[in-house]
């Protein structure tokens, strides 16, 4: 595996391999070891053409714990916001000797373009492209779910997971649908019909418009961020009505199975898709998701960068 652009790049075995690697790294990170020499001398560029402090910091922490050199290249003040093309930027990074580029971009497919056009020779890691995918987020979500709910199994077989909210515009949802189903979970998408894409019926997930009917039957509920501006684009009448039908509040939380967990990729709109008491409740693993993010991103960097060039045909 040279790049991580989409969950479709992974087999179930690849994904489990990354989760297992992250498990071992987590154990090391929990101990006193804070820095590993594994990627010493390698250069990783964080190319963030769209604001995302938490994902950037997570990748940066992961790279630094593996002793890689990190160059941050972020949107504000970067040439990308001044109309320089992705191609020119990539060629600049190549000239700097980047071994890997972690890219966040507002255009769907930007990571794949960077990887396909051979503008640069390093690995490309998609840290979120438009409304397409966010594979490292899905891996950390699967990691979190496995840790809490899999009872020691490698995969997520038999688990039922609800993804709730703005599926249409969510790269987190796309990557999670692909990964969670790849790992054997049943995924149910819960959203108003306006926030589901035409063609969702071809996804490996079921669809429900009735959040209350779904809640008692799932092992995890993953809430998606709903942006306020969706209202003006007529996706729903107003925030109050959205919350009434699709917000996770303490009343709804009390209908969940006793073992079920609440997840959110952040940043949250407290009071819109999730109430503050739910976000801060004992069921919430939202803060832990952030911790797991570093371990998963270390695992991704390890798998992509630690080994030498693969033989043709392998993996």
């Amino acid at each position: 595996m040279r790049h991580l652009l989409s969950i479709t790049d992974l087999t179930a075995a690849d994904a489990i391999g990354i989760l297992n690697t992250a498990t071992e790294l987590a154990r090391i990170n929990e101990g006193q070891v804070k820095k590993l020499p594994t990627l010493r001398g390698r250069t990783i560029v964080n190319l963030f053409a769209e604001d995302s402090t938490r994902t950037r910091i997570s990748f940066e922490a992961a790279a630094k714990r593996l002793s890689a050199d990190v160059i941050n290249f972020s949107a504000k003040g970067s040439s990308l916001s001044k109309g320089e093309s992705l191609k020119d930027t990539a060629q600049t990074l190549q000239a700097m000797g980047a071994d890997a580029v972690v890219i966040r971009h507002s255009a769907s497919g930007a990571a794949q373009r960077l990887a396909d056009l051979e503008w640069m020779s390093g690995s490309v890691i998609n840290a979120g492209d438009g409304t397409h995918e966010h594979p490292s987020q899905a891996l950390l979500d699967a990691f979190t779910i496995r840790k809490h709910l899999s009872k020691g199994a490698n995969d997520l077989a038999g688990l039922r997971i609800a993804i709730v909210g703005d599926v249409l515009h969510s790269r987190v949802a796309r990557s999670n649908v692909l990964l969670l189903s790849l790992l054997g979970a049943d995924v149910v998408l819960v959203a108003p019909p306006t926030l589901l894409p035409v063609g969702v019926e071809t996804w490996p997930a079921s669809v429900s418009y009735d959040f209350d009917a779904v809640i008692p039957n799932v092992d995890a509920i993953m809430m998606l961020r709903v942006q306020q501006e969706r209202m003006t684009d007529l996706f729903f009448p107003n925030a109050r009505e959205y919350s009434r039908y699709f917000g996770l509040n303490s009343e709804r939380m009390s209908a969940m199975a006793t073992h079920a967990i609440v997840m959110h990729p952040g940043p949250m709109n407290r009071g819109l898709e999730i109430s503050a008491d739910v976000a801060d409740s004992a069921r919430s693993v939202i803060v832990e998701q952030v911790t797991n993010g570093v371990n998963i991103r270390m695992a991704i960097l390890y798998v992509l960068l630690a080994g030498g060039p693969l033989e043709v045909g392998s993996n």
Binding site: S108, G109, G130, T131, H132, R171, P197, V198, V200, W203
Partner: peptide, 18 residues
């Protein structure tokens, strides 16, 4: 809109053109 609205646009996250 970026491409035909359907299963491909849904997967690619490109805005659909019905």
């Amino acid at each position: 809109a970026q491409m035909n609205e359907g299963s491909i646009s849904a997967t690619l996250g490109l805005k659909g053109w019905p």
